[in-house]
């Protein structure tokens, strides 16, 4: 094949240049903005607070304070419980919707998918704030209950409670769990359901032994996209939770704000990441073991 010398030289140089040009943006963003920034957090967590940007000296005092003061263990436990309940509630309530979408929706499927994803397009702050309007002392729920003659004084028990945080977060993140579960259910060949039925499995047994295990990757993906943002949320506790619902995200936020103790805030952030890693590893191993039995 006759090849012109100029283009031959170019085809030698081009692959290297092409790879470099293509690789540069991704490498820069991931190495500098993700890995280096996370390394900075870890570094700062090991420094003492002297008001300067990177602190001074090397110390484990931040982590010691985290471990010895029971307040932090309590806030961390509360964050985990709240995020855990929210994750469980969103996944369990989303599953039937995903099921309906995958197996029964028919021509209505795209309409329902559209309706389920639309809240993605509305402001997260306003979705949270809507619950403040509903639950507030002079809010929608109290005024409606008074209007209906059920109570005569506004109740204080709705707003500023951990329960308010749970319901608000469960609502704000509700649609996030549907899509991954739907995608997983969609991918299951209908022949497997028919085969289970032919072998005499009742519908519930088919669900428990065939469909549920096969949809577990979707369930896990849905759980991750709900759990991670909720465990670090500081907006919802601030808007509807009150002081009794302070979460770990609220503490990190105030460490970098009012409290102005960046190294300690960094240590809190490291602790959150460690907890997420731990929860991830535990669920994965439990999931594997369950998958092995089924």
């Amino acid at each position: 094949m006759p090849v012109e010398s100029g283009s031959a030289r170019r085809s030698v140089a081009a692959p290297w240049m092409f790879q470099a040009a293509m690789g540069l943006p991704g490498a820069f963003v991931t190495l500098v903005f993700i890995l280096f920034a996370l390394a900075l957090v870890l570094f700062l967590a090991l420094r003492g607070n002297d008001g300067s940007l990177l602190g001074q000296g090397f110390t484990l005092a931040n982590f010691e304070a985290l471990v010895t003061d029971p307040l932090y263990a309590m806030v961390m436990a509360r964050s985990l419980v709240i995020a855990g309940i929210v994750t469980l509630a969103t996944v369990v309530t989303a599953y039937p919707v995903a099921w309906y979408l995958a197996f029964h929706a028919g021509r209505r499927r795209s309409l329902i998918l559209f309706l389920v994803t639309l809240p993605f397009w509305t402001s997260y702050l306003l979705r949270v704030f809507a619950w403040r309007i509903i639950l507030a002392y002079n809010g929608v729920l109290n005024s409606a209950l008074i209007g209906l003659g059920i109570i005569d004084q506004p109740l204080t028990l709705f707003i500023n409670s951990p329960a308010a945080v749970v319901i608000t977060l469960a609502h704000a993140y509700a649609p996030f769990a549907i899509l991954p579960i739907y995608v997983a259910l969609e991918a299951i060949p209908p022949s497997l359901k028919e085969a289970a039925a032919d072998l005499g499995a009742k519908p519930f047994a088919t669900f428990r032994r065939v469909i549920l295990p096969l949809s577990m990757p979707g369930v896990m993906a849905g759980a991750v996209v709900v759990f991670v943002p909720t465990v670090g949320d500081y907006v919802t506790p601030a808007l509807v939770g009150g002081p009794a619902s302070t979460m770990i995200g609220s503490l990190i936020q105030s460490s970098f704000g009012k409290a102005n103790d960046w190294p300690f805030g960094a240590a809190l952030a490291v602790a959150v990441m460690a907890v997420i890693l731990l929860v991830g590893l535990v669920t994965r191993s439990v999931n594997r073991r369950a998958g092995g039995i089924a």
Partner: peptide, 25 residues
């Protein structure tokens, strides 16, 4: 690189926020 690019999915926003705050300062 692709794995690291998907990592922020596992990091709460508050941690991304403070990590970048340190970096940009």
């Amino acid at each position: 690189v692709s794995a690291v690019a998907r990592l922020p999915l596992l990091i709460p926003g508050v941690v991304i926020g403070i990590a970048l705050l340190i970096l940009v300062n």
